[in-house]
């Protein structure tokens, strides 16, 4: 497995997309945190939550990066070279998932703590201190959410194989479709409670007592959906022609 992880690590870091997605995620989220801290005024103090203003934006960039890590392999047919070198498709795709997820977690932690640190430097208000587990989860949890989102993106990438299709699904689903589900009368709210990205948000931003899952339960649910999708993707990749 270490050899496979090394393979996928080399593959990921010898193209440009992980680099620019890291720089963009870092630059934009930390930049937004700084901007919020600078422009903030008025009666309500700046909170830890404010410092994570750009995290959803970073989430989308990481999602695109993770999807591209797979779809570009299909586009340039390097997936065939890959399966030729490692015919055990499940293990090499799991190695890829692990590498991409690892990167997503690291980028998530750096951007989250970076954003918080920048906000704290600029504002320094007491509400910005990480005082309880909820505050910590809000910052440190970003990496976990990015990681699970990366698994989701890799899975969708394997299933769809096409950059445009995978990115469209992965962006329209959390940004629009999950919100529209909430608009459905009567059942909408119940359905929305079981939407994966809604649960990711709930994990980060605290729990509404009305919700069925605890914060960590929500993350586990988000991870569960990702795992099921990945499992499906692996089965499909094993069955079809490369």
């Amino acid at each position: 497995m270490t050899a496979l992880l090394a393979t996928e690590r080399i593959k990921l870091f010898t193209t440009r997309s992980p680099w620019w997605s890291m720089i963009m995620t870092l630059g934009i989220t930390v930049g937004l945190a700084g901007m919020v801290a600078l422009t903030h005024a008025g009666d309500r103090p700046l909170t830890v939550e404010h410092s994570q203003f750009g995290s959803q934006f970073g989430l989308m960039i990481i999602t695109v990066m993770a999807a591209l890590a797979v779809t570009t392999e299909y586009r340039f047919a390097t997936i065939r070279t890959t399966f030729q070198a490692v015919p055990n498709r499940t293990s090499i795709l799991l190695a890829k998932t692990a590498v991409v997820t690892g990167l997503a977690v690291v980028v998530g932690e750096i951007t989250a703590f970076g954003s918080w640190a920048v906000a704290k430097l600029i504002d320094g208000g007491p509400e910005l201190s990480i005082r309880d587990s909820g505050d910590l989860r809000m910052v440190a949890g970003v990496g976990l959410v990015y990681g699970v989102a990366a698994v989701m993106a890799v899975a969708v990438g394997i299933l769809v194989r096409q950059s445009a299709g995978a990115i469209s699904i992965l962006l329209i689903w959390p940004l629009l479709a999950e919100n529209l589900v909430g608009l459905i009368p009567r059942v909408g709210d119940d359905l929305r409670n079981w939407m994966p990205y809604v649960n990711a948000g709930r994990f980060l931003n605290g729990v509404d007592p009305e919700m069925p899952l605890s914060a960590w339960g929500a993350l586990a649910y988000f991870a569960g959906v990702a795992a099921v999708l990945l499992g499906t993707a692996l089965v499909v990749a094993n069955r079809r022609d490369a």
Partner: peptide, 21 residues
């Protein structure tokens, strides 16, 4: 043409080498 156009020749062979130990 089954290579990633933005990867160098050496990098392409390096990942293949890693995969085969």
């Amino acid at each position: 043409k089954w290579v990633h156009p933005n990867r160098s020749a050496r990098a392409h062979l390096r990942w293949l080498a890693a995969a085969s130990k």
